[in-house]
């Protein structure tokens, strides 16, 4: 009997392939957080800092994935975060917005190779059709995870995506390039990094927040990865000398200053 049941399941899967999207989310300080450093300028001073989902991960990549699911409810959205237990509130928020389940890899690293390797290790086992990242995080501005993931998984990668649609099993993508945009077509599976234009920011509703409490959040141990880089120290930019105010009656003086003093025009 058993082989027959197995065959039946193969048939079932063949006819009802469910699209799976993996959305990578990172925890970053709030956009208004004061940037200061501790321990002899070797660590970000996180005292009193409000943590958020990296805006590119949330507003553009996650919300676009949710929109795709709203158009096709068979789509399943998995969230992945590489971080310590302090990441869980932002993971729950992403579940409240509309993720179906989440994985947290219990690893705190600032090395993008390490983070990408942790995600790739999980993604390899998940058979994802699409992997979404933000174009960068607003703390380390690395823009590296998407490209590294694509390479580790041997997948196509399109960065700086502003529009994403699926048409007859192909991804149709608009991406930003210097001074313009281009349209790309690619087969899935595929990795993209998302930016403004993809979707609009949303606020989770009460039903989402209640539902998020019981959605699965799996915690995995990291795999051993040797980091390729490390942070030695941080610096703050030198303070500005202060603004030189020019009278609105005499804007010619501003032009003179920009020309002669700042040598900017």
């Amino acid at each position: 009997m058993l082989p027959i049941i197995e065959d039946w399941w193969l048939f079932f899967n063949y006819n009802f392939t469910i699209m799976k999207i993996l959305v990578c989310i990172s925890k970053t300080p709030d956009t208004t957080a004061k940037i200061a450093f501790a321990d002899n300028n070797t660590k970000f001073a996180s005292d009193g800092v409000q943590w958020i989902i990296n805006p590119y991960d949330e507003w553009y990549s996650l919300v676009r994935a949710i929109e795709l699911k709203e158009a096709d409810p068979t789509i399943s959205i998995h969230l992945i975060n590489v971080g310590g237990p302090e990441s869980e509130p932002i993971i729950r928020k992403a579940l409240a917005l509309g993720g179906d389940e989440a994985i947290r890899i219990n690893c705190d690293s600032n090395d993008s190779f390490n983070v990408a390797s942790q995600i790739a290790n999980v993604a390899k086992q998940g058979n994802y059709d699409l992997i979404f990242t933000g174009k960068e995080t607003i703390d380390f501005n690395g823009s590296s995870i998407g490209g590294m993931l694509a390479e580790l998984l041997d997948l196509p990668f399109v960065s700086h995506v502003t529009k994403f649609n699926i048409e007859t099993n192909m991804a149709v993508i608009i991406r930003e390039i210097d001074g313009g945009e281009e349209t790309n077509k690619a087969a899935m599976p595929l990795v993209i990094s998302c930016q403004k234009g993809m979707a609009e920011q949303r606020i989770p509703n009460m039903k989402g927040i209640m539902g998020a409490r019981t959605k699965p959040l799996k915690v995995l141990d990291p795999v051993d990865v040797v980091s390729l880089t490390s942070i030695v120290s941080f610096d703050l930019p030198p303070a500005k000398a202060g603004v030189k105010l020019v009278s609105p009656e005499n804007p010619e003086e501003l032009v003179r200053l920009l020309h002669e003093e700042a040598k900017a025009i």
């Binding site: 993008s112 995870i145 390479e151 210097d178």
Partner: peptide
């Protein structure tokens, strides 16, 4: 350059070359 092309290629190349990457 840390522009749209550089940001797309450098991370991939970093994996291929096993080279540490600093962007920006």
């Amino acid at each position: 350059s840390n522009n749209t092309s550089g940001k797309s290629i450098a991370p991939r190349l970093s994996i291929r070359m096993k080279a540490g990457l600093v962007s920006g």
